[in-house]
C-alpha cells in the first residue's frame, strides 16, 4: 500500500481517471457480444446490436451445450488439457533457459540468442508444409502431442524470461548463495525461480492465452473433431454459414463468452503474482 499512500491526491485522481478511460475503451466493445448472446439467430441480424431484443440467453446456452451431442464441452476439455499441459511444460523449459542465458556466460550463448531472435523473423506461411512433413515423420499428426509438445519450445517466452531474469535477479545474490556453498541447480530453485515468480506467471498467462486462442496448429495437425480445441470448433461453426444452408453465429457468440471463463479464472488466480512490493529484504 506504500505506493498509494505516498501519492498525492491529485495524482491519485489522475491515475484513476486514466485507468477508467482505458477500461472503457477495452470493455465497451464487448457490450455487443453480451447483448448478442441473449438474442435469437434472426434477431441477431435484424435488431439493434446495442440493445436487447427477445431474451433468449437460456435457449442459446442450451443450444450451445446440446448441439452435436454436446461437442462444445469436449472442445473445452481438450483446450484445458492442451493449455495446461502445454503451458506448464513451456513455462518450465523456457524459464530455465531464459535464466541460464541471463545469468551465465558460456560459449555459444551469442549464437543461441541470435537463433532465438532470428526465429521471430520467420513468417509462419513459409513453414506450414515443411512442418507438416516433419510432424508426419514424427507420427505426431492427429495426436494431442502435435499441439502440446511443440508449444514447450517458445522462443518468445525464452527471450521474455531472460529479460525478466536480468531485471529481477541481482547477480550479487547468486554470488552470495554460491559462497554459502549452494550448487547452481539449487540456486535456481531456491533463489532464481522465486525472484522470477512474477515473470514466470506472466509467461504462463501469455502462453495459456495464446494456446487457448490458437486454432491454426490444431486445424493443420488434428483430424478428428473430437480432439479439436474450442477455438477451432467455434471457427468451424462461424464458417458454416459460408456454404451451408444454416447459420451458427449465435452459438459462436455464446460459446466465445463461455470460453472466456477459464481464462478469467486463471487471471484471477494469478493476481497474487503481480502484487507490488517484492523486496530484496524479504528474500534474505
Amino acid at each position: 500500500m506504500s505506493t498509494a499512500t505516498a501519492a498525492r491526491p491529485r495524482t491519485r485522481i489522475a491515475v484513476i481517471m486514466g485507468l477508467v478511460a482505458f477500461a472503457v475503451y477495452s470493455v465497451a466493445p464487448v457490450w455487443w457480444l453480451v447483448v448478442a448472446a441473449t438474442k435469437s439467430q434472426a434477431d441477431l441480424y435484424t435488431t439493434n446490436g446495442l440493445w436487447f431484443a427477445e431474451f433468449r440467453l437460456w435457449d442459446n446456452l442450451r443450444g450451445l451445450f446440446t448441439y452435436q451431442d454436446g461437442i462444445f464441452l469436449t472442445w473445452m476439455g481438450n483446450t484445458l488439457l492442451y493449455g495446461v499441459a502445454g503451458t506448464a511444460g513451456m513455462t518450465l523449459v523456457c524459464v530455465a533457459c531464459g535464466y541460464g542465458l541471463a545469468m551465465y556466460r558460456f560459449r555459444g550463448r551469442g549464437v543461441m540468442m541470435g537463433a532465438i531472435i532470428g526465429s521471430f523473423l520467420v513468417p509462419g506461411a513459409l513453414l506450414t508444409i515443411p512442418s507438416f512433413l516433419l510432424y508426419t515423420d514424427l507420427n505426431l499428426v492427429d495426436t494431442p502431442w502435435a499441439i502440446i509438445l511443440p508449444s514447450f519450445f517458445s522462443a518468445f517466452s525464452v527471450y521474455l524470461a531472460k529479460v525478466y531474469a536480468e531485471g529481477a535477479i541481482p547477480p550479487e545474490l547468486l554470488e552470495a548463495a554460491r559462497i554459502d556453498g549452494a550448487g547452481e541447480y539449487r540456486i535456481f530453485f531456491s533463489v532464481g525461480a522465486r525472484l522470477m515468480s512474477t515473470g514466470a506467471a506472466t509467461i504462463f498467462l501469455l502462453g495459456f492465452v495464446g494456446s487457448w486462442n490458437s486454432f491454426f496448429g490444431p486445424l493443420v495437425y488434428l483430424r478428428d473433431q473430437h480432439k479439436w480445441p474450442v477455438m477451432l470448433g467455434l471457427y468451424s461453426w462461424l464458417k458454416v454459414k459460408v456454404d451451408n444452408s444454416t447459420d451458427l453465429t449465435g452459438l459462436v457468440v455464446v460459446g466465445s463468452i463461455i470460453s472466456l471463463v477459464p481464462m478469467v479464472a486463471l487471471m484471477i488466480s494469478l493476481q497474487r503474482y503481480w502484487r507490488s512490493g517484492i523486496t530484496l529484504g524479504s528474500l534474505r
Binding site: S26, P29, V30, V209, W212, L234, S256
Partner: peptide, 11 residues
C-alpha cells in the same frame, strides 16, 4: 484492461 487481449481474434 486485459479483456480485449483475451477475446479470441475471430470474435
Amino acid at each position: 484492461l486485459l479483456i480485449p487481449y483475451m477475446i479470441p481474434g475471430i470474435v
